[in-house]
Design a protein around this nucleic acid. Structure first.
Length: 265
DNA sequence: ATGACTAAACCTTTTAGA
């Protein structure tokens, strides 16, 4: 199975690129089984379900006007779909989960999430990010008990460490790099999850997001903030995980690139 | 330069992203 996450920064703008990318994966004999999208920035009634259906995919989506919004695009149908963190009252559409079947029928829980940005340490938005992270950890704890094969992927808006930051000195304790955010990320890891990208050899300065300004992509001034976390039971089944920088070279690209995981499942 | 670019909406200006 191949799973991917991609913050598309407006699905209305990026739909052709998403369809092209999915088709290119299939053409390379590496079809994507589940693609988690973030930042749809569209109300549910505007979601282009027909375009995905015509391309051979099923969809679950949870959008909102202007901001946020997440979806799961898949070859097979999802069951037990959950939207947002149960028990956490949230005005934003940030999380969607579904259960899929592996090649031998074993269930795989897939959670796609758009973590809050947090704006700046000390801000109201930062406090919301911390509350959201706490609620996520508590819910993932219960999810892991029910679903040993679990993938939590999306735009985390958090770097693990200096290796994920193009300018670690300049961004010391800045948003996406604070100790408080990284402590929450580590708390997720401590539930029994693994950073798939770090399970495999990677290029130097391996990022998933680059600012639109100042030719940041061309200069590879980026951050690794899009992550694919796999559960303990899935870890031995992971065979590759990498950032696909190709779509970031498109005309009118998203500022994020997809991250793709391959599983022996 | 709390800027630079992109996207959406209350659209020639503001809000948000990261």
């Amino acid at each position: 199975m191949r799973l991917a996450t991609w913050n598309v920064n407006s699905l209305a703008v990026r739909l052709p690129q998403v369809l092209d990318w999915l088709a290119a994966q299939s053409a390379a004999n590496a079809p994507v089984d589940v693609l988690a999208l973030q930042e749809l920035k569209m109300a549910d009634e505007k979601f282009p379900a027909a375009a995905f259906t015509e391309a051979g995919y099923q969809c679950q989506w949870f959008g909102q006007k202007t901001y946020n919004g997440v979806a799961l695009i898949s070859r097979t149908a999802a069951t037990d779909v959950v939207k947002n963190i149960p028990g956490f009252d949230d005005e934003h559409s940030r999380l969607i989960a579904g259960t899929y079947s592996g090649s031998s029928g074993e269930p795989l829980r897939v959670i796609g999430a758009y973590f809050p940005n947090g704006q700046a340490p000390g801000s109201d938005k930062f406090a919301y990010k911390m509350r959201w992270l706490q609620a996520l950890r508590e819910w993932i704890h219960t999810e892991l008990a029910q679903h040993p094969h679990l993938v939590l992927m999306g735009d985390y808006n958090i770097t693990f460490d200096d290796a994920d930051v193009w300018d670690p000195e300049g961004m010391r304790e800045a948003i996406h790099c604070t100790t408080e955010e990284r402590t929450h990320l580590q708390a997720l890891i401590d539930l029994g999850l693994h950073d798939s990208v770090r399970l495999f050899p990677q290029p130097e300065k391996n990022y998933s997001w680059w600012d639109y300004r100042e030719f940041a992509f061309r200069r590879n001034r980026g951050l690794r903030i899009d992550h694919v976390l796999v559960s303990d039971a899935l870890r031995p089944l992971a065979t590759t995980c990498a950032v696909d920088k190709l779509p970031r070279k498109n005309e009118r690209p998203s500022d994020h690139a997809p991250v793709v995981l391959t599983l022996d499942l």
